[in-house]
Structure formats: structure tokens, C-alpha cells
Simulated scan of single mutants.
Amino acid sequence: MTTHLDATRESYDTVAEDYATRIGSLFAQEPISRSMLAAFAELTSGPVVDVGCGPGHVTAHLAALGLSVSGVDLSPKMVEIARRQHPDLRFDVGSMTALDLPDGELGGLVAWWSIFHLPPAELPAVFAEFRRTLVSGGQLLIGFHVGDERLSPERAYGHPVSYDAYLLRPDVVAGLLGKAGFEVKARLTMEGRKRPQSCLLAKAV
């Protein structure tokens, strides 16, 4: 039986090259959201993991801000591209649903538009997994698309895909983070190209 993780992995393996070509230029056009990455970097000490790192553009940006950072992604093809484009950084294949990390190892964790494909019912367990890996006082930064819809696109980045995507309400995400052991310290909501986007900066308590 194909799970949503399998569908997401296979879809991103399919679109990886075209995604990597397009996403770098889009990221360069997002100074407001990058300001949250800058704040995260200033507040964070210790190792950082960028979960759902894709081709590694955010991982590299965080490294340029002075952080000791590595990336994890579900898609082997994305990890292959990340390693090729950023050979000085570490990238591993893995899932945010079960991170291969000891308890309390990280000073910070970033999920930059990478919880998009998780069914909302799985978010409590994933946020608990994030909290498990962070030291007390560690920083978490999450970016996501705002809404309350489930999307099932048939094509993306010029290729057929088979994943679902979920829009989320900031208050709902903040509430789930609170239950998982985080205190939300800052919120940013932006009008996106197609729909609003939100970033939440939280501290592990």
C-alpha cells in the first residue's frame, strides 16, 4: 500500500531537478520571510537541522548566517542535488516523522514550508518529535501556507505528482506547538503569490 510519505517521496524525486532550478530564484525574492531566518540564526546556538531541506538552499543560507547546520529530506533525489550544489554541507535522507537524532541534541530546527504534505492529524506527533530533538530553550522555525484546505494537484513543476498538500491556520499550528512543549515567540503572516503564508518562531520549554 502506498502511504502519503511514499507518494511525497516519489513526487519530489520526479520534480527535483526542475524544483531546484526554480526555488532558488523564488527564495531570493522573499526578504520578509528571510528576516525570520535571520532572527532564528541570531537566537540559536548549537547544531541546527533543516528538515525537508529540498535542494539545500535554506540550509546553505543558514550556514552563511553562521550556523552549524545540516539538512534532511525525504527525497533521495533532492538530497543528491543538495550534496551536489552544497558539497561543504551535510545532507541525509530521512523523515521528519522519525528523525535519526538523539534526544536534546539540537540547538535549533527549521521546517521551511516542509510540513505542507503532512496530514494535520500527524502534526502533534511530528511536533513532539521536533521537541524531542531540541535542548530546552532551543529554537524552532516553521513556515507554512495558510488556509484550511486539502489540495490534491495532479501536476507540479511541469511533472505529474501524486501527493496531497494541506493549508493550515496559524492559531491551530500555534496551539499544537504549545501542546508539544513549545512557546511561540513570534508570528509573521504574509500575502503570498497564491495564498497567505505564515512563519512561527518558537522556543522549546
Rank of each mutant, 00 (worst) to 15 (best):
H57T: 10
K77T: 11
G107N: 04
S136V: 12
V173M: 12
V184D: 13
D18E: 11
H145R: 13
Q85L: 09
V72A: 09
V15D: 06
T97L: 10
T2G: 00
T59Q: 10
A125L: 11
R193I: 00
L168F: 14
G94V: 03
L26A: 12
E80V: 02
V110E: 10
S33M: 10
S152M: 05
D50R: 05
V48Q: 15
S25R: 15
V161I: 13
A82E: 11
P47A: 14
R169P: 04
V93D: 03
K194I: 07
T8A: 13
A174N: 06
R150C: 02
A180S: 13
L151R: 07
L37P: 02
D171R: 12
K194Q: 15
A125P: 06
L26F: 04
G181K: 09
A180W: 03
H61A: 15
V146W: 06
V51D: 10
K185D: 14
F144N: 14
T59W: 07
G94H: 02
A180G: 01
H86G: 05
V51C: 12
F130A: 02
G104R: 00
K203W: 06
R150N: 00
A128E: 13
H159E: 15
G107Y: 00
S25T: 15
D73H: 04
A98W: 01
A202L: 09
A174T: 04
A41R: 00
T97P: 01
E154V: 05
M1A: 11
K179D: 15
T2M: 04
V173Y: 14
V205F: 07
E80H: 10
F40S: 14
V161G: 01
I142R: 05
G52K: 02
E122V: 10
L168A: 13
E149H: 08
A7W: 05
T97E: 15
I23K: 07
T14Y: 00
F27W: 06
A16H: 05
E42L: 08
W113E: 12
